[in-house]
Amino acid sequence: MPELWAAERCITVPAGNNLLDSLLAAGIAVPYSCRAGSCHACLVRCVRGELLDAKPEALDDARREQGWRLACQCRVVDDVQVEVFDPLRDGVPATIISCDWLSADVLRLRLTPQRPLRYSAGQHLQLWTDDAIARPYSLASLPSEDTWLEFHIDCRHGGAFATAARAFQPSDSLRLGELRGAALHYDPDWQTRPLWLMAAGTGLAPLYAVLREALRQQHQGAIRVIHLAHDQSAHYLAEPLRALAASYPQVQVELWVAAELPAALAELRLVSRQTIALLCGHPGSLETFTRRLYLAGLPRSQVFADAFLPHAG
């Protein structure tokens, strides 16, 4: 059986075993979340030997050349040595400058990194607490306008990071992991096309950044912003969105609640087959949105989606 070296230990595992499962079974702490190769919480660096990687495209070429792999997507097929991502060694230090509640369940977190971070509207970033609790969150800030990094933390359903976030205070420190995500973005070539931004819950965070980026680039087409929440009190960016709609005549804001969703979807009509739709939120909500857009006649190639996967651990 292959030997797996990690955390200064040697573990014998059956050939073909999942790397993440093998590490966890041996008591080696590895953060993980989605188990689908999306969140990148389970990053490890392969320093000797090689792994069978089921999803090599999940990491860019530069990361792979440095030896980084996603433990949830790899199987141990031969002797191998790995290093678990260490936020103290591999992460970027950041300081919380403010944390305030936008609603009963959504915490707005603003922080400044120790060194400048190059990012685009729509991307997401791995956040680590000092206790090595990790979770990816989308950026709601805009690099051209904001001097901080902003995140909207949904604390409604708990989870280790959300629970820790409730105790955050200004001046507390965090570590930043991998920056990724390209599905949600603004393309200047879309400037005259209708743009639909459809969000569920805190899926609104990256789309709020994309909206501001589109307006910064003087988008000329109509922009329709739809936010789905469990009730009216959960429309946590209602006022900022209404303010943008009041300032930009091409922006239309619709605030939907779950009980009204079937009726609202039934009335959804395309004004143009040139529409571009950006979707973000829980997978179930995105599936519902996508199905209705398809039935309305929108080509799948014009739908860009980023699902907020539930915590698997």
Score class of each variant (00 low, 15 high):
A160E: 12
R63L: 10
E287L: 08
T290R: 08
L176A: 10
P2N: 06
L261D: 01
L149M: 07
G203L: 03
Q218K: 11
A214H: 02
G297N: 04
T147M: 10
V225L: 04
N17A: 15
V77D: 09
S22W: 13
M198W: 07
L107D: 03
A132H: 10
H152W: 09
P299T: 07
A205T: 03
C155K: 02
L149H: 06
D60C: 13
T12H: 15
R45P: 09
E145I: 06
V251W: 00
N17S: 15
V303Y: 02
L19T: 08
L195R: 01
E57W: 07
T163G: 01
Q126G: 12
G16R: 09
D189S: 13
L179Q: 06
G16Y: 12
S22F: 14
L142W: 03
I96A: 06
L211D: 00
L24D: 04
A94L: 12
E287Q: 14
A296L: 04
G159C: 09
R115K: 11
V225Q: 00
W148T: 15
P14S: 14
H235G: 07
V30P: 11
A246C: 04
T129N: 11
L149T: 06
V84Q: 11
S301Q: 14
S301E: 14
L51I: 03
A58D: 07
P2M: 12
E178Y: 03
T202N: 06
R291H: 12
Y32N: 13
C74Y: 10
I223N: 00
A222W: 00
R110D: 12
Q217H: 12
Q169E: 15
G122C: 06
A104Q: 08
I133F: 08
H311A: 15
M198E: 00
M1V: 13
R193N: 06
L255D: 05
P87S: 11
L70S: 04
D86S: 15
E50Q: 14
A229T: 02
D154T: 05
R273D: 05
R69A: 11
C34I: 08
W196A: 03
Q66T: 04
D78Y: 09
L207E: 01
D53M: 04
L268E: 03
V84F: 12
D172T: 05
A307R: 12
A132W: 02
T163Q: 13
G281H: 02
R48S: 14
A7G: 12
T275H: 01
G313A: 13
D146M: 08
T290V: 01
P240D: 03
M198F: 11
W196Q: 00
Q81P: 03
R292E: 12
G177I: 07
H219C: 06
V30M: 14
S141A: 13
V44L: 10
T12I: 15
R175Y: 15
A205V: 07
R242G: 05
D154E: 04
